[in-house]
Amino acid sequence: MGPLTMGAPYQSAWMREDQRIFRDSVRRFVENEFVPRQARWQRQNGPDPEAWPAAGRAGLLLPDIPAEYGGGGGDFTHQAVVREELLGAGVQFGCGVHGIVAHYLLAYGSEAQKRHWLPAMARGDLVGAIAMSEPAAGSDLQGIATTARRVGDEYVINGSKAFVTNGRHAGLVCVAVKTDTAAPGSRGMALIVAETTGLTGYRRGRPLEKIGMHGQDTCPLYFDDVRVPAANLLGGEEGHGFAQMLAQLPYERLGIAVDAVATAERAVAITTHYVLERMAFGKALIEFQNTRFELAECRTEAMIGRVFLDYCIGRFLAGRLDDVTAAMAKLWLTDCQCRVVDKCLQLHGGYGYMTEYPIARMWADSRVQRIYAGSNEIMKEIIGWSL
């Protein structure tokens, strides 16, 4: 859908001709291939397996990974375009998490690891997932209990992971583990990559029954004496896992911020269309002052969000998006998303509570934005520590 264009047009500074061409291509693919399948994806709690290679052929996967590793050779703006077009069409697809895994490999993987895994991920032959959260450790990743013990040329992994996006389809899982259980806090943590096909002791749990995001594959994962090659350790040394995760969080949180703004903009657009057509007391809802005032606030918040997001994208492209600013983006923009969607649902009246209406699904889907990738309370802590 892209930025709001009602009234005076606003153009993101990062939009260039190649992004516009790419956006047109992504939009056509999403509308033709993904939108018609959303109802089935919702019923089955995730996309069809063949959606991944189809997305790979269309260039939706890893658009910001270098071409030498099979990616699109673009930058974060190309990833933003993909996320905006998916959210703008109301499509749930785990390519954001897939891309985060790829950036862990790009940042910390050996040359052999990158050349082995990234091209397959770009094609959609290999789906990526991140296994970090646990039943007793969510935003506080220092509290993870999953262990990896070095035995010869292998690591033996034991533990369980919760809320894993792409868990059922994942052929490549980046697992946060403790390699030194005696080390306090974040020390002794590492990231180990597991190829899941035929992996003994690796088990997927049943799809989770979530409030929203029904079209996105989410499940727990279990590791019972799972053996993976020691060479699958990211970064080549134990003990750096927590620092690696912290370094990648601005990228992850910026992606969530993109989703938040795209959702708020879509909510305003579909609600504006609704109130122009819906009649009450003999006139269109838009003719009531309260309707106009509520939508005026929503549109203003969405525009402020867009400008702040573009500022953050500019800083990221320049290599200057710091942890605090990324936390601000995640905090404010996801809160903004939920405020806007809730107001827009109210303007739909009783129909807003019906899941056949997009605004109802958006309302349910939006709530998790304030929880994952570090809850918004943690974002306040990060910002507060910088004062």
Rank of each mutant, 00 (worst) to 15 (best):
P3L: 11
G7E: 15
S12N: 13
S12V: 10
S12D: 12
M15L: 14
R20K: 03
I21M: 06
I21Y: 01
R23C: 03
R23H: 08
V26K: 14
V30E: 10
E31L: 03
N32H: 07
V35G: 04
R40K: 15
R40E: 15
Q44P: 02
P47G: 07
P47Q: 08
P49M: 07
P53A: 04
R57I: 02
L60P: 05
L62K: 01
I65Y: 07
Y69Q: 03
G70T: 04
G70H: 03
G72C: 07
G74Q: 05
D75P: 08
Q79Y: 14
A80G: 05
E84P: 03
G88K: 02
G90D: 15
F93G: 07
H98I: 06
H103R: 11
L106M: 14
Y108W: 07
R115N: 11
L118G: 03
G128M: 01
A129C: 11
A129K: 07
M132S: 11
S133T: 09
E134V: 05
P135M: 11
S139W: 14
D140A: 13
D140V: 10
G143D: 05
I144C: 04
T146Y: 01
R149S: 00
R150T: 01
V151G: 04
G152A: 04
D153S: 02
N158W: 00
F163P: 09
T165D: 04
H169V: 13
L172I: 06
C174K: 00
V175R: 02
V177Y: 05
T179K: 09
D180C: 04
P184G: 07
G185Y: 09
S186C: 10
G188L: 03
L191C: 04
T196N: 00
G198D: 00
R203V: 02
P207H: 04
L208M: 15
I211P: 13
D217M: 00
D224P: 01
D225T: 03
E237V: 11
E237A: 06
G239Y: 05
H240T: 13
Q244Y: 06
L246W: 14
L246Y: 12
Q248T: 05
L249G: 06
P250V: 10
L254I: 08
L254D: 02
G255W: 00
A257K: 07
V258P: 08
A264E: 05
V275L: 01
M279P: 07
F281T: 07
K283Y: 14
A284C: 12
E287G: 04
Q289W: 12
N290V: 08
T300D: 08
E301A: 12
M303T: 13
G305D: 14
G305P: 06
R306E: 14
V307I: 12
D310M: 02
Y311D: 15
Y311S: 06
G314Q: 02
L317Y: 09
L317K: 07
A318E: 12
L321S: 01
D322H: 10
D322Q: 12
D322V: 09
A327N: 06
M328I: 15
A329K: 08
K330F: 09
L331E: 09
T334E: 00
T334L: 06
C338G: 08
C338I: 11
C338K: 14
V340G: 02
K343C: 12
C344R: 14
C344D: 01
L345C: 08
M354C: 11
M354P: 09
A360D: 04
D365W: 05
S366R: 12
R367D: 02
Q369P: 05
Y372I: 09
Y372L: 09
G374P: 05
I378D: 10
S386H: 15
